[in-house]
């Protein structure tokens, strides 16, 4: 089965230069927004280090959901994930002064969350579920007939099913690249792996997500 875009009949834009210009402006917008966010988060963290509770509450609102979802890609128990959110955010409150500004604030916070999640996984041991690629290939839903168009909700459902078939590592890097929008250097720092491994892992994560989506019979909606 062809991948999303080709399956939906959408083709690559006829004028590649036009497309590249559009990409370029989009990237400038993304980069500017990212820099502003990071500056705001650094400012908030400095205020937290000075003991300002209001700044912490603002930072908490910005990261509560993100940390929870990120941790949920590593531990599959929502209750454990919530406990880790609490532990992580309290570590931020108590240790804001130790932030060395050598990375983004988000990388620092996700790093704390990741260590706590890995500790939780070690504590839970074998009770954790971890789906392998082989399992995923075996899991297309036979009752789901191909459809020519699917609405957004169905896309989300398929995305959820496809993501759930990925390994923890692949779910994690896809989220860090496409949702948290971290540079590969920051991801390498966060995961304590070489940048070349980050690129490789993201490449295969994307390939496998594509395969799972195809296996689940997804058809892309018209954007």
């Amino acid at each position: 089965m062809a991948f999303l875009l080709r399956a939906s009949g959408k083709c690559v834009t006829a004028d590649p230069l036009h497309r590249l210009r559009a990409d370029w402006f989009e990237q400038i917008r993304v980069m500017a927004t990212t820099d502003e966010h990071d500056a705001l988060h650094s400012h908030l963290l400095a205020s937290v280090a000075a003991g300002e509770r209001a700044a912490f509450e603002q930072l908490y609102r910005l990261y509560e959901k993100r940390v929870f979802q990120y941790v949920s890609t590593l531990v599959y128990d929502p209750t454990v994930a919530e406990d880790i959110v609490v532990e992580t955010m309290m570590a931020v409150w108590r240790g804001a002064a130790s932030f060395a500004s050598t990375s983004r604030v988000s990388t620092w916070i996700f790093g704390i969350a990741r260590h706590k999640a890995l500790d939780a996984i070690r504590r839970m041991g074998r009770h954790q579920r971890d789906v392998t690629l082989e399992e995923a290939v075996e899991l297309p839903n036979p009752q789901e007939s191909p459809q020519d168009s699917v609405d957004r909700k169905q896309v989300a459902t398929l995305m959820q099913r496809a993501l759930s078939k990925l390994s923890r590592e692949h779910q994690e890097v896809l989220r860090l690249v496409f949702y948290e929008e971290l540079p590969y250097e920051e991801i390498a720092t966060l995961l304590s792996i070489p940048t070349s491994t980050v690129k490789t892992r993201v490449y295969y994560a994307k390939q496998r997500l594509k395969k799972h989506l195809e296996a689940l019979g997804q058809k892309a909606p018209n954007p």
Binding site: K65, F68, E82, V85, V86, Y179
Partner: peptide
């Protein structure tokens, strides 16, 4: 690039729609 752009859009849409932690988390903090 087209595939990655589409994947980014769908992943962002998917994660945006996912719930956050329950209110007990905020209360615990």
């Amino acid at each position: 690039l087209e595939e990655l752009s589409y994947m980014r859009t769908e992943l962002r849409r998917f994660y945006d729609a996912q719930p956050g932690p329950s209110p007990r988390t905020t209360q615990a903090v």
